[in-house]
Design a protein around this nucleic acid. Structure first.
Lengths: 253, 253
DNA sequence: GAGTGGTCTAGACCACACG
DNA sequence: GTGTGGTCTAGACCACTCA
């Protein structure tokens, strides 16, 4: 007696919590507003703090919350659309491509990159560090790998260090014919240095955009860009004529 | 005395664990091999199980591990490249587009989709459910929204139910001129029904691909596709002539 | 039934931001 | 200093898979 359908599907608490809080965000909070702290929230919902955190983590993953140590949890603005379309068919550094060079070094690339470059694993490669700012926010950090053999004109001596050297490498790239590029997007977690640039904790989820630049039948350069997954929506506008503001709004009342 | 540089940067344990295990995966494990269970691993590293799990979660996020309840933790194969390029400029359902229709219903779309469709919030819409299989794996689940006004020829009576109706809707779409499409990729967490189709737990990280199909200056259809983030790398081949196998390998010895 | 990963608890301490 | 989120512990029980 009494076994009549008591929760035939025991939904995890954190899942239910996430739903409840998510709905509350839609109806009771405005963007930027700060939530009660985790201990209060946990007490209010009658769960352990760890459980409450599991729910908050999911909401943060979905870009609905923003948490900062020492500060608090705030309602995140809707994700910004960041254009990563390849229709431009141009080298990095050409025109104004939204990226800002900050550094340049010369070293042997990691194995995974060397594989993409189809060079010997030991080939010296220019490694440019670039940052992308969009809507006043740091949204991505990039490592651009340009094998020395791609830009033979660039000797080690005539190039200064740092950003100036970056510009020299990019300038050399423009002289080549770009046959095409292909791109891949996957989920990753932020390396320590990227996390620092993006003002996130190491390990936070990021969107990894890998681009292969092809010139004269070979891979002339490879870019690995790390985008903040919480604040960015990558857009691949392909409609040419049709151009629409991608800033969709999430209401607050 | 003795305060000489004691761990000036207290790296979190789980972060260090992740690194150690990650390196072990590269050197000591083959794809598909099963790891010791979490309790053993935690004991071996001298940490609490929760801490060990935090490390495993990150490795799973990066697609290096696969965990299944009741079974164990195994070394994941490298992510498969899944083509999501828009260069084909064709409607869904045309040719063989890798998608398989499983169902069709007619209802009012959720608000977020209605906004994209630029229809009234109350407009009846055909909602197709499709699945994508790649390399013998279920990789994505899609909801395709086609407003009734897009396919006026399709009356409610002449269309049967389920997959047959899906085909009817897709057939009507082919008759329209496709002006273009644009696409966006963002991080999400799997809804309960998607999780079931993809054989994942609800809330697992997924890549959300939103496509807007434009015809005669208006949004004729919207697709929201949910890709498994752990096993998929979305590729946007744009190089046309150059075609390369994207199945990069991660070695095991 | 035995063994696995998934959920949950009730604490504790730490790193960080801000006044 | 105070309050926040981040890390960590040592347990417990549950849901699932498989022999």
């Amino acid at each position: 007696m009494g076994t009549t359908q008591l929760e035939s599907v025991p939904e995890p608490k954190y899942w239910h919590l996430k739903t409840v809080i998510g709905e509350a965000l839609d109806s009771d909070f405005a963007v930027g507003e700060i939530l009660p702290n985790e201990r209060d929230l946990a007490a209010r919902f009658g769960v352990a703090r760890a459980t409450l955190r599991q729910a908050l983590e999911q909401l943060e993953l979905e870009g609905r919350l923003q948490r900062r140590r020492g500060v608090g949890t705030t309602v995140a603005p809707p994700r910004m659309g960041v254009d990563v379309s390849t229709t431009q068919h141009s080298w990095p550094g050409s025109a104004q491509d939204a990226w800002q060079s900050v550094d340049c070094a010369t070293a042997v690339p990691p194995a995974a990159v060397a594989r993409l470059l189809e060079t010997g694993a030991e080939e010296e490669t220019h490694i440019l560090r670039r940052l992308r700012v969009s809507h006043g926010q740091q949204v991505a950090a990039e490592l651009l790998y340009v094998p020395a053999s791609t830009v033979p004109e660039l000797s080690a001596i005539d190039a200064p260090s740092g950003p100036a050297r970056s510009r020299a490498v990019l300038r050399e790239l423009q002289r080549l014919d770009l046959d095409g590029q292909d791109r891949a997007v996957e989920l990753g977690s932020a390396r320590a240095d990227d996390a620092k640039e993006l003002d996130r904790l190491p390990g936070s989820p990021v969107l990894l955009v890998t681009t292969r630049y092809v010139s004269e039948g070979r891979t002339a350069a490879v870019s690995v860009a790390t985008y903040r997954a919480d604040t960015c929506r990558l857009t691949f506008g392909d409609s040419g004529d049709v151009e629409i503001s991608h800033d969709q709004e999430r209401r607050a009342s």
